[in-house]
Write a protein that binds this DNA or RNA. Structure first.
Lengths: 135, 135
DNA sequence: CATACGGTAACTATAACGATTACAATTAAG
DNA sequence: CTTAATTGTAATCGTTATAGTTACCGTATG
């Protein structure tokens, strides 16, 4: 399947909230901007709420708004809030104990992938929501 | 779906070939090391062949072997050979023309993701198959 | 010719994702 | 008090990618 686009949607959501700061914005409004269903938005908002990035108000005139300045929210924060851990996957097949290569492979790959993921994360940390809006 | 582990399997395959240099290794042998079906191995070997990393010989006593030194093959080469392009995905929903944020979002995200992907790729380029074997 | 391979097509099972419907709880407005 | 709007969730469905599997053809070896 197509790789998951939740980080992109989360960034879009937060950008919309940032563009209407200090207002409560409904999930329906955000959904219209992203062009998807409001529930998809609310699911991601839920994760962002748990991470302390946004807050939600129920009831009529409810909605969501940012808890932090848009220039203090980075893509890395959003990625972490979504619990997206690994960009690379290692095959789950058990190692073949008869094969020396097989026994060492996963550990070696894990280290290499971890370095690459950290490098990517460092770049995500350099991009704030404010910058996304300004572009 | 589980994130795709083809890069990990490709690395495993090439490591096995590197551990038996100058021999033709059958897909069945590699499959035993990876603990999967030989066809899965052959599918990936096919991509590596097209990329000029390995060569295959049909017929009895056939198999695959490396065309390059293991210390000149990096994880980035393998990733490229597999045609793995994007670590991050952007939502496909069309932009809402009425919303300024929506109209600019994908372009801004594209640039940010591209930087992060390049950073990850740079790290993959630092890891050779030799190093994976030595670990 | 028999055997052991690679290459490839076809099919299945599984899993993740996104979209959607539905509904309880909550809050503001009239 | 009633109504309307909204969040937060659960449940379901269709789509899609992956991995695994079976099957078959072509080819090289002996």
């Amino acid at each position: 399947m197509a790789a998951n686009s939740r980080l992109a949607v989360a960034a879009h959501i937060v950008a919309v909230l940032a563009s209407k700061r200090d207002e409560f914005v409904s999930s329906a409004y955000v959904a219209a901007s992203v062009n998807t269903n409001a529930v998809v938005i609310r699911r991601i908002l839920c994760a962002l709420t748990k991470a302390g990035i946004v807050t939600g108000e129920k009831g009529k005139a409810g909605g969501s708004k940012l808890l932090r300045c848009p220039d203090e929210i980075t893509l890395a924060d959003l990625s972490k809030a979504l619990g997206e851990e690994h960009l690379f996957a290692i095959h789950k097949n058990p190692a073949n104990p008869k094969c020396r290569v097989s026994c060492h492979m996963k550990e070696a790959l894990g280290k290499a992938f971890s370095r690459a993921e950290k490098a990517a994360e460092a770049q995500l940390r350099e991009v704030t929501v404010s910058e996304l809006l300004a572009a």
